[in-house]
Design a protein around this nucleic acid. Structure first.
Lengths: 210, 210, 210, 210
DNA sequence: TATGAATGAGCGTTCATTCAT
DNA sequence: CATGAATGAACGCTCATTCAT
């Protein structure tokens, strides 16, 4: 993890916090725990973050940025607009499953914490959803949901993806279910209900690009 | 009331715990808080629950039972099999939104907690999903997902509904979105992608496409 | 100290708190310090006092009551109204010097703490001053301050006594000054300026009583 | 400005400390708070003061000097010796009420702190009282307390003034009492009991009594 | 002259839990 | 059936202070 190297203790604190989130959950994320893990005194953390809220908000920021990057990247990697939504869904889900600690604080944590999150940053976070909305707008051909405005549609896509991510990463999905099948199923589910061209076709495009 | 014997204080404890979950959130659910609220000593709670885990597990049990009841009721209320899935989706969502305290401990709490949940009880919880699976099986007419096994399909439905419930009740959905529209949209989303007879007007369109 | 015996831990906590106030001052009065001193865990204190404020308020209450007792006693011990004021001054000063810990939290501590003091109890505390006011009213014959209302006069007496008590017990008075001379001087100061018969005369009365 | 060399930061630190004392009280006076307020690092304060005690002692010094200045000024402003005491009382009280931050650390803080105050500086502080003593000596005409030595008398005056200042600035005096009336009453109280020419009308009455 | 990095001690408080009765 | 008494561990946080640079 190259992140831990360059930026000194602040970086280490954030990374450790993330790690603790993953392994033990938010309830166990304490200043003291972080300190103990990195071998510093708890006081030292306050040199880099004014308080616990700020630390968590910094994590949220990073998560928002990272997801944004991934979505933009997914968007840019698609020559054909019709493929964009799928690519972005993939980006969203892989972000959620690969970075469950970010995902938890961004989208699962009790709102009590999120409400203290500065409004200005909130706006930035909302961009991620708008990116999905734009992909829907662009990818849409026609079909049953043509009358549905794309913002609502984006939220529908979001709920589906969110459900997949959270239930999978909280290990609540039955082990007999193949996660990949569930995920791919969700994509089909989404594309079909939006009236976008199905997976089969876009496959070619994907192959053309790589 | 199945299983819930008339046990006076035990009942009171569970109800108070739920109430505290609703009003103050899981983080504030403490033995002493429950005790203070009901006017008994904290020690008394230990007469009915070995520890906090057991108390929470008991709540989860109740939640599972209650959801099961509602799903069965929804199932039974439909003469036509094709309507069943929709009815059960409605039951699931309304349970999640009306009983957020149950829903949180059942499906949102960090896995660390759930891992301590006895496997035996886990099996019972799974029944709820199988009920949805059966509804899908029964309701399915034909369509693109006919080849998808119904358990996977049930999980897909579940993820969609779970996403709607959690994002709505954690107040993360943009206020410009009408919750009811989102919910109804999700139902359409589900039914359409399963190839089940759709709601109202969109029917024709679906038929035109396939 | 018989106080420490009968009423168990609560009594012990209060007494220890007082002792700490005397020896180390309010700044060092901490729950943990009390606990360490009495050999109990800090948690135990919370069994008897909801928080530090309540503990301090309880001390204030005791102080107010104790001073009240002493003033009433002084009042009752005087057959002749003219002697009352002096007796009560003596009672006030000896309370302040013998119980400097009570006096500190009652009358010296930064108002920040006193503001949290419940209004209802405040009223009770004010009675002490009214007692002095009544003594002035009763003891007054005539003289230069006949036109001064007795409430203002009581406050003037109070400030004089307060000054003596605080400067003496904070050891700010030069050691070459004999405390008793200062105290007696203050009484004369007070009586004379109120136009009440001087010490000389009332001495007889005192002797008659004893 | 005597003694207070133009020392830039040192000056800034002291002023900020005073300001913090005024706005937030002694309990909130911390090195880090001062540092934050002036925009320097906490470490920098230690370049000018060995520790917090020294900083507070420096403030006390300043307070002592300032009060001294005011008393001297009051003394010099009176052509007639008989007016001096009153002028100095006014100076003392106005210092106490206008500069509560100085007054608190000089005369209210728990002795534990003052004990660390270097003896040498203590002597200087004593001069202030001697100034009052001299004013009494000079102003005295005759009267009942002619036999009281003037140092004791000065301390009596001091206790009265101290009582007025502290009870007023700790907002313990009943709101129905007009502060100015209390203060002026205290002056009369003092002058009369010292047998010094009184204020206005009451003169005759005093003479009639003696 | 000034700082950044770091800390040990302490604060008030809450927590789940135990044990004797 | 219910409690009172008690606790060790933990929490977020602030403090004065040190030390190398």
């Amino acid at each position: 993890m190259p992140e831990t190297v360059e930026n000194g203790l602040q970086r280490l604190i954030l990374d450790t916090a993330r790690q603790l989130l993953t392994t033990t959950g938010y309830a166990q994320l304490s200043m003291r725990n972080i300190a103990k893990t990195i071998g510093y005194s708890a006081t030292s953390i306050y040199l880099y973050f004014e308080n616990k809220d700020e630390l968590v908000h910094a994590l949220i920021d990073e998560g928002v940025d990272l997801l944004y990057e991934r979505l933009v990247e997914a968007n840019d990697s698609c020559a054909v607009p019709q493929d964009r939504l799928l690519a972005m869904c993939r980006a969203y889900v892989s972000f959620g499953l690969e970075r469950p600690e970010y995902y938890e604080i961004m989208y699962v944590l009790h709102p009590e914490y999120i409400k203290r999150y500065p409004a200005e940053k909130y706006r930035k976070a909302r961009k991620n959803l708008e990116l999905i909305g734009a992909a829907i707008e662009g990818g849409r051909v026609h079909g049953p949901s043509a009358d549905m405005d794309s913002f609502l549609a984006a939220n529908l896509v979001w709920t589906q993806l969110h459900g997949v991510v959270t239930l999978l990463s909280s290990e609540r999905v039955d082990k007999r279910i193949d996660p990949d099948q569930l995920i791919e199923g969700a994509y089909q589910h989404i594309l079909r209900s939006l009236g976008i061209r199905d997976l089969g076709i876009s496959d070619e495009v994907v192959e053309k690009r790589s």
